[in-house]
């Protein structure tokens, strides 16, 4: 079997932690979009969900920062954040060390990665799971691309990572779903929080939906920092999903919600051979 689902979504902590401060209609629409994605995910009957996230120093630090890392454990825990602040209770999430090991062994044939037998989830994974698998009953394989501690993972390597993930998934008997999480333009955790470049976001989503490799890899960190903030560096996770799925994307929801600090995004991509 191979991929049975591919999608991308926002993971901003404000989505759960500051829901009470947002305009209720926007929250309702966003929650409906997450619910719809959850139903699509469930309908694909996945055995495991690979979450390609941009973590925020839950596990990796500049003491030893991998470009790519993959979890290889039977259980994970999260969130590291104060549960009341995030609006998500601390919990245990099922993994599958054997599946991780097989994916890792295949991916590392072409991309140098780190693996980790312990891994704590932060909002980058917990916020999407809160909506998509609220009972935490689906096996998760966490993967991380360094979007936080410069020098960052080059975009073309994020693409290569996605291709390697696809090749690895093709070798598995399990039905694999993949999800890229992050933001497009945003300036999170700063006094700028809430600043969103909608034009930049929509242009990126057009390229992502068309799976336009040349356009996606033409972004550079200098321009992204200026036009889309440090949060824009997280496009790496979305780009890797494009490379893995090889299909065309559909944006089901996009709406800037300033108090959530991001243009909230829910999108899926067809899976092509």
């Amino acid at each position: 079997m191979s991929l049975v689902f591919a999608g991308i979504c926002s993971h901003a902590p404000g989505i759960t932690g500051r829901a009470h401060m947002a305009e209720p209609t926007a929250v309702k629409s966003l929650h409906a979009a997450y619910r719809s994605m959850s139903e699509q995910l469930k309908a694909s009957r996945p055995d495991a969900l690979v979450v390609i996230a941009a973590e925020h120093f839950a596990n990796f630090f500049m003491s030893n920062m991998p470009s790519f890392a993959i979890g290889m454990a039977d259980r994970y825990e999260g969130p590291i954040e104060d549960p009341q602040w995030l609006g998500i209770a601390r919990t245990s999430v099922p993994g599958n060390a054997d599946l991780s090991r097989r994916l890792i062994q295949e991916i590392m044939q072409s991309v140098d990665i780190a693996y980790a037998e312990e891994w704590k989830f932060d909002h980058g994974i917990m916020v999407p799971l809160h909506f998509l698998t609220p009972d935490y009953d689906l096996t998760i394989v966490p993967m991380n691309i360094n979007c936080q501690g410069p020098p960052l993972t080059p975009l073309h390597r994020a693409w290569a990572f996605g291709e390697a993930l696809r090749r690895a998934a093709d070798t598995c008997s399990e039905r694999i779903a993949i999800l890229g999480t992050g933001g497009i333009s945003h300036w999170p955790a700063t006094p700028d929080s809430g600043k969103i470049n909608e034009t930049w976001d929509r242009e990126f989503l057009r390229s992502w939906s068309a799976n336009n490799k040349a356009a996606l890899l033409a972004y550079n960190d200098t321009d992204t920092y200026r036009e889309a903030g440090q949060g824009g560096f997280e496009i790496r996770t979305f780009i890797s999903v494009s490379a893995a799925a090889k299909g065309l994307g559909s944006v089901h929801f996009y709406q800037p919600i300033p108090i959530f600090a991001v243009g909230c995004t829910i999108a899926t991509m067809t899976i092509t051979e």
């Binding site: 932690g17 401060m21 120093f57 590291i80 104060d82």
Partner: peptide, 27 residues
């Protein structure tokens, strides 16, 4: 790094508007 700082503010129990104001006051 803002992500480290934001999580630290959460550990301190600092409400979001206070966190934003604290950074502006710092500057």
């Amino acid at each position: 790094n803002g992500q480290l700082l934001m999580h630290y503010a959460a550990y301190l129990g600092m409400p979001w508007p206070e966190y934003i104001a604290a950074m502006r006051n710092g500057v």
